[in-house]
Nucleic acid binder design. Structure first.
Lengths: 217, 217
DNA sequence: CTCCTTAAGAGGCCAGTGGAATCTTGTTAC
DNA sequence: GTAACAAGATTCCACTGGCCTCTTAAGGAG
């Protein structure tokens, strides 16, 4: 643990918060978010449950904070290649697929996380998230100038939706993974990066086609 | 309840199963699947928990069975209009949006339901589900003959993915709904049928564009 | 250096969960 | 009428998130 027993100063409190987020991140590499209990999280941090809740109002709030942190870091390091639109969005898909933490948390957002949390916390998260999505839309328009601003935002929202829909099936629970071994279910086995890339190519193609059709009219 | 106290014959057992599914369906109109506990379900059926588990191996298995039943019924009654591809997929979106049960369960599939269930049950479900998706793909090709078989299947899978990704945000928990009242979050308020329809138009446009480009080559 | 305040920490408790094990008793076949 | 069987209820278990209560480390005042 740390060199202090009790966090009194704001810096020490922030250190505790970051320690909790760090452990949560570690646990997420071992199990899906739904299986991480407050008890286990607290045990690994070396605190009691009560004190984890002191720093984050609920279990869910921990994962919200973690997602925002991870998203920011990802976008900071994201570099999209120049080239045809398909190549750009495929690179985007590969990049986000390399961040399982983001995919896992994003797919759990609507169904698991956005319960049991105060309206204020949701508002803060969504505002920050909206800004991050806007950043991504801007980056996409730099590489795909034909995209209208509206279409770029739409493309970002499809990216999020597709991650949320696709990720759980690409990372099935053990029982499901066993079932999918059945040869008749070969089509259910999913390569996440590839499928996401393909879907985004379809989306960007559709958006560009619709945009240019609207322009001709 | 029924006119018998104990279900002895296969017919009576089937009647119990259907009664359980019926109550589950009723409960789903009142609350999301994540909030329906085995206790409450059993109480409303008029059985003890143990006996619900007798008929469905786990809580999750109830919802699996319900989804398959609802999907079959929906497809039986589904009529897609003739006309341009956009109109066809928009009709599809409106139709499925009119079945909140399907949307709710489909969006819970990967994250909540496909845990805690035997490999056999998953296999059965996925096989039946695959057939239902194939049926839908066939119906789409009848109305959009330009679609290749492969693209029709892809379009169906996008439909499922988009439902799963979009539905939770269109049906937020009370706390989230309150947060989204904030004027800065106006973009987060989602009209499900409309957004799904738009996304499917983008998808089908993209698929058709890519198909015809491949054909020209 | 001592004392006093304060809030970070721990522990126990509570109502809830899914479901296995065990016990009771309708129902039916003989 | 009775015995066997399985449909039902009861009880219990390990677990969850998190609130309430109590202890005590830490730091400032004198």
């Amino acid at each position: 643990m740390s060199d202090f027993q009790r966090a009194r100063s704001p810096e020490q409190r922030e250190a505790r918060r970051q320690a909790i987020l760090g452990v949560a991140e570690e646990l997420l590499t071992e199990m899906p978010v739904s299986e991480i209990s407050l008890r286990e999280l607290a045990r690994r941090v070396g605190l009691s449950k009560t004190n984890v809740v002191r720093y984050f109002e609920t279990r869910e709030a921990v994962f919200f904070a973690l997602l925002n942190r991870a998203l920011g870091e990802w976008l900071d390091g994201l570099e999209l290649p120049a080239g045809p639109p398909a190549g750009v969005v495929e690179a985007l898909a590969r990049s986000v697929a390399g961040r399982p933490l983001i995919c896992d948390l994003w797919s759990a957002l609507g169904t698991e996380l956005e319960r049991n949390i105060s309206a204020e916390a949701v508002r803060d998260f969504k505002l920050a998230n909206g800004e991050l999505q806007a950043r991504l839309a801007t980056m996409l328009r730099e590489r795909i100038p034909e995209l209208t601003e509206q279409s770029a935002r739409e493309l970002v929202s499809y990216t999020v939706l597709l991650i949320a829909g696709l990720w759980p099936f690409a990372n099935p629970s053990p029982g499901v993974a066993e079932a999918v071994q059945d040869p008749r279910l070969a089509g259910s086995r999913v390569d996440f990066a590839e499928r996401l890339g393909r879907a985004l190519v379809v989306a960007v193609t559709g958006l560009l086609t619709l945009d240019s059709a609207a322009q001709r009219r």
